[in-house]
Simulated assay, not measured.
Amino acid sequence: MSATLKLTHKTIGVEVRRGTYDVMVDGKPVGSLELNQTIDIPVNPGRHSLQVLEGRNTSRTKTFDAVDGETVSYRCSGKSVLPIFLLSFLVPSLALSLKRE
C-alpha cells in the first residue's frame, strides 16, 4: 500500500504569485499545481522532502513522514504580505510557502 500527499494551491486574500507551481518530492518532479487546484500524489511510506517552484522562485524544503494509508496535506501559496513580497526579490526562497494542514 502507499500514502498520499495532498497539495492545494489556495490563497487567502490577494495572491501575488498566480502561476503554476512545479512540485518536487525527494528532489524529483512529480507534477504541477494550478491556482485553486488540488492534486493527490502517491508516496511510499517513510520520510520525504517537498518543495514547490515557480520560475526562479522556490519554497523552503519541507520534510514530512508518511504512514501507510495516511494522507499528508499541505496548502501552497505565494506570500501576500507586501514587505515579504518585496524582500522575495532579493531572497527568492521567501517567495513561496508550504503550510501543513
Rank of each mutant, 00 (worst) to 15 (best):
L82F: 10
K10E: 07
P92Q: 02
K6F: 01
M24F: 14
V14N: 01
L53I: 15
N36K: 13
K99Y: 08
L86A: 06
A95E: 03
L94Q: 06
T8K: 10
P83T: 02
P29S: 14
V30I: 14
K99D: 14
R56G: 05
N36L: 15
E70S: 15
T8Q: 10
S49H: 12
N44M: 07
V52Y: 00
L86N: 02
V52I: 14
D22N: 11
V23R: 00
N44A: 13
E15W: 00
H9T: 01
I12H: 06
E34C: 09
H9P: 00
L98F: 11
L33I: 02
V43T: 03
P92L: 03
C76Y: 03
Y21H: 03
L96T: 06
V43L: 01
K79T: 15
K79S: 08
E15A: 13
R17V: 00
D26I: 05
I39S: 01
V25D: 05
G27W: 06
C76H: 04
C76D: 04
E34S: 11
T58A: 14
I84G: 00
T63R: 12
L87Y: 10
L94C: 11
E34T: 04
L82M: 14
R18S: 03
V91F: 10
L87V: 04
S49M: 09
T71N: 05
T11E: 05
T4L: 05
G27N: 14
S93I: 09
E101I: 13
L90A: 15
L50T: 08
S93M: 11
D22W: 04
S59C: 12
F85L: 09
A66E: 08
T20V: 13
R18D: 03
T11V: 06
P45A: 12
A66W: 08
N36E: 14
N57C: 07
L53P: 01
